[in-house]
Design a protein around this nucleic acid. Structure first.
Length: 810
RNA sequence: ACCCGGAUGGCGAAAUCGGUAGACGCGAGGGACUUAAAAUCCCUGGAUCGCAAGGUCGUGUGGGUUCGAGUCCCACUCCGGGUACCA
């Protein structure tokens, strides 16, 4: 028998389960929730557990977040990294409808599958604190959150338009409407008015906007929120209706152009339409209103062709005293501003188009630098407010637009015609869903007592199991078909009463989940005061920018409300937020219809979870995403194989190479900096480069050379690093071993390659001492024949950048 | 239409401050070791002219600033994402 034993190869299939079991047994990933000294809350956006299973995009996001969490742990923080499932909502419900299953049975299966896949990825998640938004233990507190808003007067009910498919006989979310038709049957979608619950997020617009100033968030996310909140300063101006007592109030950001307002436009739904319309125009106006109502909300906003009808009425322009016609048109939206505008066709593109179509007068009241007061406007409106000056505007002639805005507003205000107003694009949050798969809104209607909130002691209002959860033609929730559920005694007077049958929006489930995690096992409170103050606000939140607006804005709003209600002492939930990029394949978004979806299981099986994690991080900058290629993964796997072999074969009785040690110290610095900045791809490249040095020429590797590399790779390839750490003779987890330190003295070079340019062109390189003087460098350059031959004629100038270059200009 | 990103070898990418463009990896070619293969190690690798030394060109396009531009400024093209009649 041979006494040669083959070296053990890296075998992820064996070591990955071994370490996952050990982590679970030892509670390695559990945070000390009640007594952590240096708490660090690392949060990632929780997934919707789809039936298709974990998407490679999910794993890309989670891995990046996990690396950041593990890195902080190595730096010495007590890291709490929870994860859970956003399991309620229309996605799950529609999928269940499509395959003829029930969401209450389907969801647990999907969650179990996700759980299996996620555990395999080796995330440092404290699974004790897992949440599932569709479980009564969780949504009891979602309902409690609703009640907190209700108590503060921030939840109210009003009639609002919804998309309605007359064929499917159901309410559709905006995302289910494609080009004005139902995504399922293709029927043209209409709008219906239904009583719905709203949250008064608009009251928080200013605060939501102002706090963006100091939040440490990805700039793209901040700008998306800023645009969404859409603050605009302007004025509300009143126009008296000629011959009537009514006045029309309009909102405008260009009060300076009032002398050019040649007509008014009301939204078709505007309440004044009924009173101002003349007898002669009544039929035309009613017809137009009817036609508008038939259109869905989306197509109304995307059709650019202007339409409208004259009401027959006139209003008085307070600046000019002229009578101007009042029209209705669907390009004016009831939900923004006052639902009415003053039209200034000379200086607004939409008004210009409308005025041309209906032959309404177009007047110039702003002139550009090259225009005179009587220069015709031509084919387009003049909208430049940076360079324009007023003309044809009485005493305001000559004023620049910015000054005129203030001056005109003050003048109109003095005459009782208007006030300065700030408007927001942000509208109140409609949380009602006439659907089944969500938390019932905890409200009871009593004929005697009116709207009664469900007492907290009676929470949760459990979602009943009903087989027929499909929405029907009534336009009200499926729960309304179940009398045994919705008929309840009034909590106040005991008389027969009815439950609210709408469920709340999925976005409410996710607007407070970060508050729940540390207290997930508590059944007596939504969130424990001590734990919350210890762990929140979240130190690092990582997620997709598709949630830049809704989820992140709603979470901020709910947090502010919780603070105002006295439940917490901070008002911003996420101190730091970073948006990751998207994984595409062959230049296209991954989707089932394109057949380019990656199943992570297959790759983890073939290459190991660690290699797969590392490959996802290596394929491009984390904050930009990248293109998934099958071949690329072999490179990181080879790196792990080689690092493995180096650890396995490392010795303590071979010389340590000073240059290798320098390289290791540089790599510690670079990987630390890059990991902190989420530059995972370059951190991995640096580790590869270092290993190449370490092994170059098949040299014997010293234990001390390779040991820090195991610590550096740990956040990226956790199972792998644990096994290597054990091979190096340690018994504890590598994640409790800390982050290696580097010696700053090791980072500086004594000698550098100085680039020598002549007239900006590289002509040579000199190996010189780092602190060489310009004169010495110059002497060195002139001594080099290859450089000197380009230095012909008089030397006009010499640029010397120490340690970098010498440029000789002749 | 508007607001954000982005465009660099055959491919994914790097270049943190205006200072050697292409690190690292994939794919490709060649070599060493091996009976052979795998693994490992070494070498080549933007284009073009040249036997070579070496030259010239080169970061989407066109201008500009600078001793020097992938990086800054102006104008534009294309691609991706978001918002969309917001007054």
């Amino acid at each position: 028998m041979s006494d040669i034993t083959l070296p053990t190869p890296y075998a992820p299939a064996a070591i990955e389960p071994k370490w996952r079991d050990r982590w679970a047994d030892r509670g390695t990933n559990h945070a000390a929730l009640d007594n952590a000294a240096r708490p660090f809350y690392a949060l990632m956006m929780f997934p919707y557990p789809s039936a298709e299973g974990l998407h490679v995009g999910n794993l890309f996001a989670f891995t990046g977040s996990d690396i950041s969490a593990r890195f902080h742990r190595l730096l010495g923080y007590d890291v709490f990294q929870p994860l859970g499932y956003d399991a309620f909502g229309i996605h799950s419900e529609n999928y269940a409808l499509r395959i003829g299953a029930h969401p209450m049975e389907l969801t647990p299966k999907n969650v179990a599958n996700f759980q299996r896949q996620l555990e395999r990825a080796g995330l440092m998640v404290d699974w004790r604190q897992k949440v599932d938004t569709s479980r009564p233990e969780y949504y009891k507190w979602t309902q409690w959150v609703f009640l907190q808003l209700y108590r503060q007067g921030l939840a109210y009910k009003k009639a609002a338009a919804v998309n309605w498919c007359p064929s499917c006989k159901t309410v559709l979310a905006n995302e289910q409407v494609e080009g004005g038709t139902c995504e399922r049957c293709g029927t043209a979608v209409e709008q219906r008015f239904l009583e719905q619950w709203f949250f008064r997020i608009s009251a928080y617009a200013e605060r939501l906007l102002n706090n963006l100033e100091w939040l440490d968030w990805s700039p793209i996310t901040k700008s998306a929120q800023k645009n969404w909140i859409g603050r605009s300063e302007g004025a509300e101006l009143s126009f008296r209706v000629d011959g009537q007592t009514d006045t029309v109030t309009v909102f405008t950001t260009r009060p300076d152009t009032i002398f050019g307002a040649t007509y008014l436009v009301l939204a078709p739904e505007h309440p004044l339409v009924a009173t101002v319309t003349t007898e002669a125009q009544r039929a035309a106006v009613a017809g137009y209103q009817e036609a508008t109502k038939k259109q869905d909300l989306i197509s109304r906003k995307s059709t650019k062709e202007k339409t409208g009808v004259f009401t027959g009425a006139y209003a008085v322009n307070p600046a000019t005293g002229a009578n101007i016609p009042i029209w209705i048109a669907d390009y004016v939206l009831m939900e923004y501003g006052t639902g009415a505008i003053m039209a200034v066709p000379g200086h607004d593109e939409r008004d210009f188009e409308f005025a041309q179509l209906f032959a309404l007068p177009i007047v110039r009241v702003v002139a550009g630098p090259d225009d005179r007061a009587d220069t015709p406007l031509g084919e387009v409106a003049y909208t430049d407010d940076a360079q324009g000056r007023l003309v044809n505007s009485g005493t305001f002639d000559g004023l620049p637009v910015a000054e005129a805005k203030t001056a005109v507003t003050a003048w109109l205000a003095a005459g009782g015609h208007g006030t300065k107003v700030t408007n927001y694009r942000l509208h109140d949050w409609c949380i009602s869903r006439q659907r089944y798969w969500g938390p019932p809104i905890p409200i009871i209607y009593c004929d005697a007592c009116g709207t009664v909130p469900v007492p907290e002691s009676q929470l949760p209002v459990e979602l009943p199991f009903i087989p027929d959860f499909k929405p029907d033609d009534s336009g009200i929730s499926p729960l309304a078909r179940h009398e045994e559920w919705f008929r309840v005694p009034c909590p106040t007077c005991g008389a027969p009463a009815r439950r609210e049958t709408d469920v709340s929006d999925t976005f409410l489930d996710s607007a407070w989940y970060f508050l729940r995690y540390p207290s997930a096992t508590r059944s007596d409170v939504a969130f424990d005061a001590d734990r919350t103050s210890r762990w929140l606000p979240v130190d690092s939140y990582i997620g997709g920018n598709e949630h830049a607006v809704l989820h992140l804005l709603y979470s901020r709003f709910v947090t502010m409300v919780m603070k105002d209600a006295g439940h917490i002492d901070f008002e911003e939930p996420f101190t730091r937020f970073r948006a990751h990029g998207m994984i595409i394949r062959e230049g296209a978004k991954m989707s089932k219809s394109k057949g380019n979806v990656i199943n992570p299981d297959v790759y983890m099986e073939e290459w190991g979870a660690d290699a797969f994690r590392m490959y996802l991080m290596f394929l491009g900058p984390y904050e930009e995403g990248g293109d998934f290629r099958d071949q690329g993964i072999s490179g990181v796997r080879r790196f792990l194989d080689r690092l493995w072999a180096s650890v396995r074969d490392a010795r303590a009785d071979v010389p340590i190479d000073a240059n290798v040690v320098r390289q290791v110290h540089r790599t510690i610095k670079k990987v630390g900096d890059d990991t902190a900045g989420l530059s995972y791809n370059t951190a991995i490249a640096a580790m590869m480069e270092c290993l190449n040095h370490l092994r170059s020429g098949d040299r014997a590797v010293h234990r001390a050379e390779v040991l820090p590399l195991v610590q550096l790779v740990a956040a990226y390839a956790p199972h792998f690093a644990e096994e290597c750490w054990e091979m190096l003779g340690h018994t504890g987890s590598v994640f409790d071993a800390g982050w290696p330190t580097f010696d700053p003295a090791m980072l500086v070079d004594n000698e550098v390659d100085l680039v020598v340019q002549v007239n900006g062109k590289v002509r040579g390189k000199l190996r010189l001492a780092a602190d060489v003087t310009q004169d010495a460098a110059m002497a060195g350059a002139m001594a080099d024949a290859g450089i000197a031959k380009f230095v012909v004629g008089e030397i006009k100038k010499v640029i010397f950048v120490p340690k970098r270059l010498l440029n000789i200009v002749v």
